[in-house]
Design a protein around this nucleic acid. Structure first.
Length: 124
RNA sequence: GGAGCAGCCCGGGUGAACGCCGGCCACUGCAGGACGGGGUGGCGGGAGGAAAGUCCGGGCACCGCAGGGCAGGGUGCUGGUUAACGGCCAGUCGGCGCAAGCCGCAGGACAGUGCCACAGAAAACAGACCUCCUGUCCCGCGAGGGGCAGGGAAGGGUGAAACGGUGCGGUAAGAGCGCACCGCGCGCCUGGUGACAGGAGCGGCACGGCAAACCCCACCCGGUGCAAGAGCCAAUAGGGGAGCGUCUUCUCCGAAAGGGGCAGACACGGGCGGCCCGCCCGAUGCUCCCGGGUUGCUCGCUGCUUGAAGGCGUCGGCAACGGCGUCUCUAGAUGAAUGUUCGCCGCUCUCCCGGGAAACCGGGAGGGGACAGAACCCGGCUUACAGGGCUGCUCCAGCG
RNA sequence: UGCGGGGUGGAGCAGCCCGGUAACUCGCCAGGUUCAUACCCUGGAGGUCGCAGGUUCAAAUCCUGCCCCCGCGA
């Protein structure tokens, strides 16, 4: 059943409230990669699923640009979510350069974030 | 063929892989008193002409509203149109353009107040710096200069603007002093619903400009906004603090001190969501302050023949628009869906190769493809926009 | 989503209401003073008044439409 929808990205795998964003941003671990800034924190209880939220501020561009950046980030997370460590809360913040970045730049940035997080949060 | 004006329309298409939001249906099975929630599958739907800016106008919702007045805001040629508008349509006037057309916050300056820098003699009510003319006196051989009395405002100069303009006559010099044309004012006639236009006449020039200065006039406007508001809701929960006056008549309890009740007066406080008059309220209740709880959920919200809805046809109207008939049903998110990646086709630009005298044709490679993302819903306005299409019209040139 | 404030030499700010000359401080340049520097004294340069259009004889100022920055409430 899990294989049938391996690339799904339902709401249960996303951060949805302002409180969650703030705790991750205040106490989480920073990983910087080109056009993206990632923040991660291990979830308090023994939850398995990694939850991810996106932040694209108005400094990045107008509404069309912001939507495109957020959809590309979500596409990355959707297809390669299984590569990330389990049981984390993450926030991906788009930098200003994300407005003009091409698709390969997003892929390289995600590679950096993934390898860095695997070092910081090794599987038990 | 070139240059230009106006109006309308389009805003890439298609395929694969993997996804997101919502609706309906089926199966599954979690919880169970019930509403419900999860998973899987199937079938439909899923951004714009400006969705933008938030500049106006409405719908809808709550609050307020006996009545009156004052503030405040808006609009501003006329007539229509509309749910309404600062929008739109038609016309008038003024300006620009050879023209098609375009632009205009375009009421009132004898209701009042105010301002008009610098320059200039003088800046709004008339006045006279240089000067012109007449008479007379003085100085000087003379040319001429000066004083006084009077007439005049044509000429010079300053300015954005100088108290009608141009021409002819007239005069000592001049002056609407007279005449013609133009401008201005007044009433009359004609046309028009009206703004206004045209005509003949009279007056003999008085009444400078600025109201996108205060203002006056006419008309319009209650406030706040879907985080409105309603339900789940039991809750006006439970808790702490402060305030609720004075005097008088009558009366009740009491031996008295004092306490209570009704009514009135004067204050005080509160409410009437801009203010005032005015009105209402003030003792098992009311008002204010402190403090506590809420990642709240659902409806509103997106269609039940819906809705100031859209398409087509027809009728009325110059048109905006309206009547009738018929067809269509068209996104509903809430850390916020409507995509991401890779191909192909079409458009366009550059380069290379081949053919050709050239226009061009065939093949290959590379690049470009705008402005911009619904957030309660409509009607407008304004602003941004690669490229393309259609219709009508104007001017110029050539040919027939 | 509603509302408020601001944009003036390189920097900070007046002037705007009530139209006519853009003032001040710091900084910059030149000269003086000093053996030299600083302080001080004298003189000078430097501003499309955010952009566009309009009203007016005349606009930083008044009106209209845009752009940008900052702040506040729900």
């Amino acid at each position: 059943m899990a294989n049938a929808r391996a690339f799904a990205f339902p709401k249960s795998a996303r951060l949805l409230s302002r409180r969650d964003f703030l705790t991750v941003q205040d106490t989480g671990l920073k990983v910087s990669a080109d056009c993206v800034l990632a923040l991660a924190k291990r979830r308090a209880t023994g939850a398995i699923e990694t939850r991810i939220g996106f932040t694209v501020s108005s400094k990045v561009g107008n509404a069309v640009v912001r939507n495109r950046v957020r959809r590309r980030l979500r596409q990355l997370v959707r297809t390669r979510r299984h590569e990330l460590p389990k049981g984390l809360d993450m926030v991906l913040i788009a930098r200003n350069s994300a407005a003009t970045a091409e698709w390969p730049a997003f892929v390289r940035a995600f590679d950096r974030v993934t390898s860095e997080l695997k070092k910081r949060f090794p599987p038990p």
